[in-house]
Design a protein around this nucleic acid. Structure first.
Lengths: 159, 159
DNA sequence: TATAATTCAGAATTATATTCAAAATATTTG
DNA sequence: CAAATATTTTGAATATAATTCTGAATTATA
């Protein structure tokens, strides 16, 4: 399942484009946009879910009212053996850690973390990260301002 | 609107938790979970939308079947005057650019980009980035493997 | 070309969204 | 503290939507 075997057509792309923009669009509205019967659209959506093209319907929340004003990226050298990504898996378990990427170059991981403020980031590092063995060093970059943040993919126009 | 003036209660948190997990949950199911009338839940959801606590309902898609297998982070030095973030705004206009953060430290921006492959990243840089004035230098980090990637916030349990 | 597999439309049923008035609950203020 | 005000919730009504199923049409495959 690397995505090569799944073939999507124009209609699928339209569905994905509409749902990526608004996950709560009604099936009826989808059908109207696509000029198809609701039952047919529903079938396609279910198939896209089954095929794992659609991973999740999620709600993007404003971090500020939820007291999550600090965003940081941390690059991390780890002593994971080649082929092991234990550190990555452990990091992924921490709810404040939104992303864990294994990266090329000398730093092994790049992670994205959201906490209330810098002191809660510190305690997260002291309490959670410190318990993960094989982390050799970290370098934290604090975000001062986010200009853009979305996960939307660029979806092909046709075929 | 920095989020300090908006007060959310336990019920709001529950709504946000459920909708963050599944944006397509029906209002009726929400009401059942919260043991409230659907109309009351709907009012709250609408208020959360109005207050900009809920930013968007979006569908998380699998990048692979949509031919977006390359993920990269680029840190970028810019010659923006102090207080100006023109480069950031220009970067934000590029659809392949998912995130633009203004960061502390010598590099001014950290951006997240998704393209089909490394050659399309190259052409993006040649065709789009190169047109933005005041970019002094870039340093690209390619993601080899993503262990975790979500935007979910940690939502307080109570109060 | 026959057969199988997909995809679609339309009808029927079940469930949901939405609106509104009234009741209940909180909150403010004299 | 209590009346006044504002906010939130409920429940009923109705409009709209989701879902299931069947059969026809299209497309792919043997």
């Amino acid at each position: 399942m690397n995505g090569n075997d799944i073939i999507l057509d124009k209609v699928d792309f339209s569905i994905l484009r509409l749902m990526q923009e608004n996950a709560r669009i009604s099936n009826a509205d989808l059908a109207r946009e696509l000029e198809m019967a609701p039952s047919a659209v529903l079938e396609r959506v279910k198939k896209l879910e089954q095929k794992n093209v659609i991973l999740q319907y999620t709600t993007r929340l404003n971090p500020a009212p939820l007291q999550q004003k600090l965003l940081a990226f941390i690059s991390m050298k780890a002593a994971d053996g080649l082929g092991s990504n234990n550190v990555g898996l452990e990091l992924a378990k921490i709810p404040e850690v939104q992303e864990v990427h294994h990266i090329a170059g000398e730093d092994c991981y790049l992670i994205k973390v959201r906490t209330a403020d810098s002191s809660s980031l510190m305690s997260l590092m002291r309490n959670s990260f410190s318990k993960i063995p094989n982390i050799l060093s970290t370098r934290t970059t604090i975000v001062l301002e986010t200009v853009k943040e979305q996960q939307q993919l660029v979806i092909p126009e046709k075929q």
